[in-house]
Amino acid sequence: MDVSNYVYLSALLFTIGAIGVVVRRNAIVIFMCVELMLNAANLAFVTFSRIHGNLSGQVASFFTMVVAACEVVVGLAIIVAIYRSRRSASVDDASLLKR
C-alpha cells in the first residue's frame, strides 16, 4: 500500500467536514465539522512530512493544534453567549440579519 492513501483519507475527511458545515444547523456541530477539517489538514501535514523526510510538517501540525485550541475557546464562548440570550444554539434561529 502506498503512503498516498493517507492523503486520500485526509482529502476525504476534509470533504466530509466541509459538507458537514453546510448541512448541519447546530452551531456547535458546525464548529466540530471545522475541527474535523483542521484534523484532516494535520494528517496531510504529517503524511507529507514523512514523504519529504523533514519535520516541518509535524511542526506545522503542532502549531495547528495550538491555534485550534484557542479558536475553540473563543468560538465556544461566543456560542455560549448566544445560547444564553436566545436559549437556542441553532443557526436557523439566528436570522435577524436578513436582507
Partner: peptide, 20 residues
C-alpha cells in the same frame, strides 16, 4: 483530551437535549 472535552462540556451546558 482537552479540546473535545471542552466541546462536550459546552454541549452539556448548552444543548444536550437539543437534537437538530
Amino acid at each position: 483530551g482537552a479540546v473535545m472535552m471542552l466541546f462536550l462540556f459546552i454541549l452539556m451546558l448548552v444543548g444536550v437535549d437539543s437534537s437538530d
